[in-house]
Design a protein around this nucleic acid. Structure first.
Length: 284
DNA sequence: CCTCATTCCTGCGGGC
DNA sequence: TGCCCGCAGGAATGAG
């Protein structure tokens, strides 16, 4: 699933391949892909034709492409979204949702999304920060991320630490995979109550979050090739480095104990029962 | 301001 | 061989 490292990898690819190019036409092949654009697919396409992309920015798991004025194209990959650079001659992908052509007749930008949780919207005045994502917190790799505010807000909460990590209004960019990996690195069980975490523990957790995201970006960057804006949703080569996610029944690389899987928030949480013991009074 | 459950979607793979 | 069903899960939404 695309989380911050995958989206950052996509951002770098897009920046290289579409910045400075002028859009000639946009075909919406599935209306759900632009469901957040209230005026509909036709209007969405009309607004984009003739516009020049001036860059590619990211906050958390959101991407946006500032255009040649104060507007922007904002998007989210959802769970299965891919952004591909493809030759105009390449056949349609099975789950092609949006096709963007450029005036130079060069590689097209294609949004391919099996489960259609992803989508795009036209953001009027959104070049600096689209209103569609203004409610999302800065991500931990943002130089302006406020560590002290994050720590204070997290410790005021009355919930499980993993729930807090997944709350995009508190810290953005972390999804199920990297939450589990960061918690393993920090030696914290997902149910640890935020109220009882010390400042020191939160500071360490934030360090682990940053280290796992940074490591994953490093791995994701290696899977690039010319006309492919990485996208596999399986985090480049980082899946080889996962310590607990998807590793139920396999040995923890730190202590050898079998990794366990527990249901949480209608999904799975993976942890090492020895390195991440269940707290005396777990939160949910 | 929280906190938390529900909903959207489709391909895959396990079980029978 | 084929059918059913659970599972994967980010984020908007609304209830309390």
């Amino acid at each position: 699933m695309p989380e911050l490292p995958e989206v950052e990898t996509v951002r770098r690819g897009l920046d290289r391949w579409v910045t400075g190019r002028t859009i000639s036409a946009v075909e919406v092949r599935h209306p759900r892909a632009v469901r957040r654009h209230a005026q509909g697919p036709g209007h969405f396409s009309e607004l984009l034709a003739g516009r020049t992309v001036s860059g590619v920015l990211r906050r958390g798991k959101y991407l946006w492409l500032p255009l040649d004025d104060r507007d922007a194209l904002v998007g989210h990959l959802g769970m299965s979204g891919q952004l591909l650079m493809r030759s105009p001659q390449a056949p349609d992908e099975t789950h092609l949702r949006v096709l963007m052509r450029f005036a130079d007749d060069g590689p097209q930008l294609r949004f391919v999304d099996q489960r259609t949780f992803g989508g795009f919207a036209y953001s009027t005045g959104g070049a600096l920060l689209p209103t569609e994502l203004a409610h999302i917190a800065r991500d931990p790799l943002d130089p302006l991320f406020d560590d002290e505010m994050f720590t204070a807000r997290l410790r005021r909460r009355n919930t499980a630490v993993k729930r807090a990590l997944l709350d995009q209004t508190l810290i953005s960019g972390v999804g199920n995979i990297y939450a589990d990996e960061a918690l393993w690195r920090a030696g914290l069980h997902w149910s640890f109550p935020t109220r009882t975490l010390t400042v020191r523990a939160v500071t360490d957790l934030l360090l682990r979050v940053r280290s796992v995201l940074g490591d994953a970006i490093g791995a994701g960057g290696t899977s690039f090739d010319a006309l492919y804006v990485n996208v596999n949703g399986e985090s480049g080569y980082f899946d080889r480095s996962l310590a607990v996610y998807g590793r139920e029944g396999k040995a923890c690389s730190r202590c050898g104990t079998d990794v366990i899987r527990e249901p949480f928030m209608n999904r799975s949480s993976f942890s090492c029962p020895r390195c991440q013991p269940t707290p005396a009074e777990p939160a949910r």
